[in-house]
Simulated scan of single mutants.
Amino acid sequence: MGEPVSAHAFGGLPRESWNSGILSCLGRNDEFCSSDVEVCLLGTVAPCVLYGSNVERLAAGQGTFANSCLPYTGLYMLGNYLFGWNCLAPWFSHPTRTAIRRRYNLEGNFEAFTRQCGCCGSLVEDEERREHLEAVCDLATHYLCHPCALCQEGRELRRRVPHPGFNNGRSVFVMMPPMEQTMGRGM
C-alpha cells in the first residue's frame, strides 16, 4: 500500500500515495510483478479490456465488465477513425480514476503539485473546490497520458481488490450429501 502523505494546510485526513507512479510501467517489482506485466500489456494492446477489468474490480458487480468495455471500445475506435488517435475514450473513462482516488483516499495530481511547489494553497482550502480541481486533473491525466493512467489504476486496484470472478483466489466446492440409501436383499 502507498505511504501516507502528511496532512497539509488544506485540512482533512492525510491522503495516501498511489501504489505506483503513473510512469511505473512494471509497478514496484513486488509479489504483484506478473500482474503488473499483464496490466502493462493490456494497457498497451487492449486498453478496453483493462478499463473493463478496472471497472469490474471497482464496482464488483455482475455485467460491469461488458457494460464498460463495449462503450469504451466504440469510443476508442470512433476516435481513432475520425481523428487518428484515441481522443474520445479518455472522456468516458476518467470518472473511474476519480472514483478510485475517492474510495481509497488517494492523493490527486493537483494536491501533489501544490504540495511540491508550495503554491495555489488558497485555491484548495475549500474541500469542494479542491475536489473539483482534482476531477479536472483526473480528466487531464486520462487525456494526456491515457494508457499510463489506465495501467496505474489497474495496478492500484489489483493490489487492493481481488478479481470478483475468482472468489479471492480460492476455489469453492459444494458437496451434496448422498440421497437416502437402503440395503436390500434382492439385487
Results as ranks from 00 to 15, higher is better:
1 M>A: 15
2 G>C: 07
4 P>H: 00
5 V>G: 13
6 S>Y: 00
6 S>P: 15
6 S>F: 00
7 A>D: 10
7 A>W: 03
8 H>C: 05
9 A>D: 11
11 G>I: 05
13 L>Q: 12
17 S>F: 00
17 S>C: 12
18 W>N: 01
18 W>S: 02
19 N>A: 14
20 S>M: 02
20 S>A: 15
21 G>C: 08
22 I>K: 06
25 C>T: 13
25 C>N: 06
28 R>G: 05
29 N>M: 13
29 N>D: 08
32 F>V: 06
35 S>E: 14
36 D>T: 08
41 L>F: 10
41 L>N: 01
46 A>R: 03
46 A>C: 12
46 A>N: 03
47 P>D: 00
47 P>C: 00
48 C>Y: 08
51 Y>Q: 10
51 Y>C: 06
52 G>K: 02
52 G>I: 02
52 G>Y: 01
54 N>D: 14
57 R>Q: 13
59 A>E: 09
60 A>D: 12
62 Q>A: 11
62 Q>W: 14
63 G>A: 06
65 F>D: 04
66 A>Q: 14
68 S>R: 03
69 C>I: 08
69 C>M: 15
70 L>H: 07
71 P>F: 01
72 Y>G: 05
73 T>E: 01
73 T>P: 01
74 G>T: 05
77 M>F: 10
79 G>C: 09
80 N>K: 13
80 N>E: 04
83 F>D: 07
84 G>Y: 00
84 G>M: 00
86 N>S: 15
88 L>C: 07
90 P>N: 01
92 F>Q: 08
92 F>W: 12
96 T>S: 11
97 R>I: 10
97 R>E: 11
98 T>C: 09
100 I>P: 08
101 R>Y: 03
101 R>G: 02
102 R>I: 08
102 R>W: 06
103 R>G: 11
103 R>Y: 11
107 E>C: 14
108 G>V: 01
110 F>I: 09
110 F>P: 02
111 E>C: 12
113 F>D: 01
113 F>T: 13
114 T>P: 09
115 R>Y: 01
117 C>S: 13
117 C>F: 13
118 G>M: 04
119 C>Q: 11
120 C>A: 11
129 R>P: 01
131 E>L: 09
133 L>R: 03
134 E>R: 11
134 E>P: 10
134 E>K: 10
135 A>I: 05
136 V>K: 05
139 L>E: 00
140 A>H: 05
140 A>T: 14
142 H>W: 00
143 Y>C: 12
144 L>Y: 07
144 L>P: 10
148 C>T: 02
148 C>V: 00
149 A>S: 15
149 A>W: 00
151 C>G: 02
151 C>P: 02
154 G>H: 01
156 E>I: 11
162 P>V: 04
163 H>A: 06
165 G>C: 09
166 F>S: 12
166 F>R: 07
169 G>D: 08
171 S>M: 13
172 V>T: 10
172 V>E: 12
173 F>S: 04
176 M>L: 14
178 P>T: 02
179 M>V: 10
179 M>T: 04
180 E>Q: 09
181 Q>V: 12
181 Q>M: 11
182 T>A: 06
183 M>C: 10
186 G>I: 01
186 G>D: 02
